[in-house]
Protein backbone atom coordinates (compact mmCIF):
# COMPACT_ATOMS: atom_id res chain seq x y z
CA UNK A 1 0.00 0.00 0.00
CA UNK A 2 2.94 2.28 0.63
CA UNK A 3 3.73 2.52 -3.06
CA UNK A 4 0.36 4.15 -3.74
CA UNK A 5 0.22 7.88 -4.20
CA UNK A 6 -1.54 10.13 -1.72
CA UNK A 7 -4.37 10.60 -4.21
CA UNK A 8 -4.89 6.87 -4.67
CA UNK A 9 -5.00 6.37 -0.91
CA UNK A 10 -7.41 9.27 -0.52
CA UNK A 11 -9.77 7.61 -3.00
CA UNK A 12 -9.69 4.44 -0.90
CA UNK A 13 -10.29 6.42 2.28
CA UNK A 14 -13.21 8.20 0.60
CA UNK A 15 -14.70 4.82 -0.29
CA UNK A 16 -14.70 3.74 3.34
CA UNK A 17 -11.21 2.44 4.16
CA UNK A 18 -10.62 5.05 6.83
CA UNK A 19 -7.85 2.99 8.41
CA UNK A 20 -5.69 3.85 5.39
CA UNK A 21 -5.56 7.39 6.73
CA UNK A 22 -2.77 5.99 8.90
CA UNK A 23 -0.52 5.80 5.84
CA UNK A 24 -1.11 9.45 4.99
CA UNK A 25 -0.56 10.33 8.63
CA UNK A 26 2.80 8.56 8.66
CA UNK A 27 3.82 10.32 5.46
CA UNK A 28 2.97 13.84 6.54
CA UNK A 29 2.99 13.91 10.34
CA UNK A 30 6.58 15.15 10.76
CA UNK A 31 6.29 17.93 8.24
CA UNK A 32 2.95 19.03 9.68
CA UNK A 33 4.32 18.81 13.23
CA UNK A 34 7.26 21.05 12.30
CA UNK A 35 4.92 23.50 10.61
CA UNK A 36 2.95 23.87 13.84
CA UNK A 37 6.08 23.83 15.97
CA UNK A 38 7.44 26.80 14.06
CA UNK A 39 4.12 28.57 14.42
CA UNK A 40 3.59 27.83 18.11
CA UNK A 41 7.04 27.11 19.56
CA UNK A 42 5.23 24.55 21.68
CA UNK A 43 5.61 20.78 21.15
CA UNK A 44 2.52 19.64 23.05
CA UNK A 45 0.26 22.10 21.30
CA UNK A 46 1.78 21.20 17.94
CA UNK A 47 1.13 17.51 18.47
CA UNK A 48 -2.47 18.23 19.40
CA UNK A 49 -2.89 20.31 16.29
CA UNK A 50 -1.46 17.60 14.01
CA UNK A 51 -4.03 15.14 15.33
CA UNK A 52 -6.84 17.65 14.98
CA UNK A 53 -5.88 18.33 11.38
CA UNK A 54 -6.00 14.64 10.48
CA UNK A 55 -9.36 14.26 12.20
CA UNK A 56 -10.61 17.27 10.25
CA UNK A 57 -9.36 15.60 7.08
CA UNK A 58 -11.43 12.52 7.95
CA UNK A 59 -14.53 14.54 8.78
CA UNK A 60 -14.24 16.52 5.55
CA UNK A 61 -12.96 13.68 3.42
CA UNK A 62 -15.66 14.16 0.78
CA UNK A 63 -14.69 17.78 0.23
CA UNK A 64 -11.42 16.65 -1.30
CA UNK A 65 -12.05 16.56 -5.04
CA UNK A 66 -8.73 15.03 -6.03
CA UNK A 67 -7.76 17.79 -8.43
CA UNK A 68 -4.77 19.06 -6.45
CA UNK A 69 -2.06 17.49 -4.33
CA UNK A 70 -3.25 16.06 -1.03
CA UNK A 71 -0.36 17.83 0.76
CA UNK A 72 -1.61 21.22 -0.36
CA UNK A 73 -5.11 20.46 0.86
CA UNK A 74 -3.64 19.24 4.15
CA UNK A 75 -1.70 22.46 4.63
CA UNK A 76 -4.74 24.55 3.81
CA UNK A 77 -6.61 22.78 6.63
CA UNK A 78 -3.55 23.13 8.89
CA UNK A 79 -3.23 26.83 8.18
CA UNK A 80 -6.93 27.46 8.80
CA UNK A 81 -6.73 25.51 12.06
CA UNK A 82 -3.78 27.56 13.16
CA UNK A 83 -5.52 30.83 12.30
CA UNK A 84 -8.60 29.73 14.25
CA UNK A 85 -6.38 28.93 17.23
CA UNK A 86 -4.56 32.23 17.17
CA UNK A 87 -7.85 34.10 17.12
CA UNK A 88 -8.90 32.43 20.35
CA UNK A 89 -5.68 31.56 22.21
CA UNK A 90 -2.90 33.80 20.97
CA UNK A 91 -2.27 35.85 24.13
CA UNK A 92 -1.87 32.75 26.30
CA UNK A 93 0.43 30.99 23.83
CA UNK A 94 2.71 33.98 23.36
CA UNK A 95 3.04 34.42 27.10
CA UNK A 96 4.00 30.79 27.62
CA UNK A 97 6.52 30.90 24.76
CA UNK A 98 8.13 34.06 26.12
CA UNK A 99 8.57 32.56 29.58
CA UNK A 100 10.26 29.49 28.13
CA UNK A 101 12.56 31.61 25.99
CA UNK A 102 13.56 33.76 28.91
CA UNK A 103 14.65 30.68 30.88
CA UNK A 104 16.62 29.36 27.91
CA UNK A 105 18.41 32.67 27.29
CA UNK A 106 19.51 32.72 30.93
CA UNK A 107 21.03 29.24 30.49
CA UNK A 108 22.83 29.95 27.20
CA UNK A 109 24.66 33.03 28.46
CA UNK A 110 27.03 30.87 30.50
CA UNK A 111 27.70 28.01 28.08
CA UNK A 112 30.40 29.34 25.69
CA UNK A 113 30.51 29.04 21.88
CA UNK A 114 27.90 26.33 21.62
CA UNK A 115 25.70 28.44 23.78
CA UNK A 116 26.15 31.42 21.42
CA UNK A 117 25.10 29.32 18.44
CA UNK A 118 22.12 28.01 20.34
CA UNK A 119 21.27 31.50 21.45
CA UNK A 120 21.37 32.59 17.79
CA UNK A 121 18.96 29.79 16.91
CA UNK A 122 16.73 30.81 19.77
CA UNK A 123 16.73 34.39 18.53
CA UNK A 124 15.81 33.15 15.06
CA UNK A 125 12.94 31.12 16.47
CA UNK A 126 11.80 34.05 18.51
CA UNK A 127 12.08 36.41 15.54
CA UNK A 128 10.05 34.01 13.42
CA UNK A 129 7.46 33.85 16.14
CA UNK A 130 7.30 37.63 16.42
CA UNK A 131 6.49 38.09 12.74
CA UNK A 132 2.94 38.84 11.74
CA UNK A 133 0.94 35.69 11.11
CA UNK A 134 0.92 36.24 7.33
CA UNK A 135 4.66 36.79 7.02
CA UNK A 136 5.54 33.91 9.30
CA UNK A 137 3.23 31.60 7.44
CA UNK A 138 4.65 32.58 4.04
CA UNK A 139 8.22 31.98 5.24
CA UNK A 140 7.46 28.65 6.94
CA UNK A 141 5.56 27.29 3.96
CA UNK A 142 8.19 28.36 1.44
CA UNK A 143 11.39 27.81 3.43
CA UNK A 144 10.54 24.69 5.39
CA UNK A 145 7.69 23.03 3.56
CA UNK A 146 9.13 23.72 0.10
CA UNK A 147 5.86 24.99 -1.32
CA UNK A 148 6.07 27.34 -4.29
CA UNK A 149 4.67 30.85 -4.06
CA UNK A 150 1.73 30.01 -6.31
CA UNK A 151 0.63 27.15 -4.04
CA UNK A 152 1.11 29.26 -0.92
CA UNK A 153 -1.04 31.95 -2.55
CA UNK A 154 -3.80 29.37 -3.17
CA UNK A 155 -3.60 28.05 0.37
CA UNK A 156 -3.56 31.56 1.83
CA UNK A 157 -6.25 33.02 -0.43
CA UNK A 158 -4.05 35.85 -1.67
CA UNK A 159 -2.00 36.73 -4.75
CA UNK A 160 1.41 35.31 -5.58
CA UNK A 161 2.81 38.81 -5.45
CA UNK A 162 1.49 39.23 -1.90
CA UNK A 163 3.22 36.01 -0.84
CA UNK A 164 6.53 37.19 -2.30
CA UNK A 165 6.17 40.50 -0.55
CA UNK A 166 5.43 38.77 2.79
CA UNK A 167 8.50 36.53 2.45
CA UNK A 168 10.77 39.46 1.57
CA UNK A 169 9.48 41.72 4.33
CA UNK A 170 9.58 38.82 6.78
CA UNK A 171 13.25 38.08 6.00
CA UNK A 172 14.15 41.74 6.48
CA UNK A 173 12.36 41.90 9.84
CA UNK A 174 13.99 38.68 11.07
CA UNK A 175 17.39 40.08 10.15
CA UNK A 176 16.75 43.23 12.12
CA UNK A 177 15.53 41.32 15.17
CA UNK A 178 18.38 38.80 15.38
CA UNK A 179 21.06 41.46 14.85
CA UNK A 180 19.91 43.61 17.74
Amino acid sequence: MNEFSDLEIMKRVQSGDTQLMGILYERHKTSLFNYFLRCTNNRVRSEDMVQNVFLKVLRNIHNFNGTGEFRYWLFRIARNSWIDKTKSKEPVMKAVAFENDHDQVQNFETTGETGIKELRKLKLRKALECLSEEKRDAIILSRYQGLDYKTIAEISDCTESAVKSRVMRGLTEIRKMVNV
Binding site: R38, L124, L128, I139, R143, V178
Partner: peptide, 8 residues
Protein backbone atom coordinates in the same frame (compact mmCIF):
# COMPACT_ATOMS: atom_id res chain seq x y z
CA UNK B 1 18.75 35.14 6.67
CA UNK B 2 17.17 32.64 4.30
CA UNK B 3 20.17 30.34 4.74
CA UNK B 4 20.37 30.90 8.47
CA UNK B 5 16.77 29.77 8.86
CA UNK B 6 18.06 26.40 7.74
CA UNK B 7 19.87 26.03 11.05
CA UNK B 8 16.55 25.53 12.77
Amino acid sequence: TWNELNTL
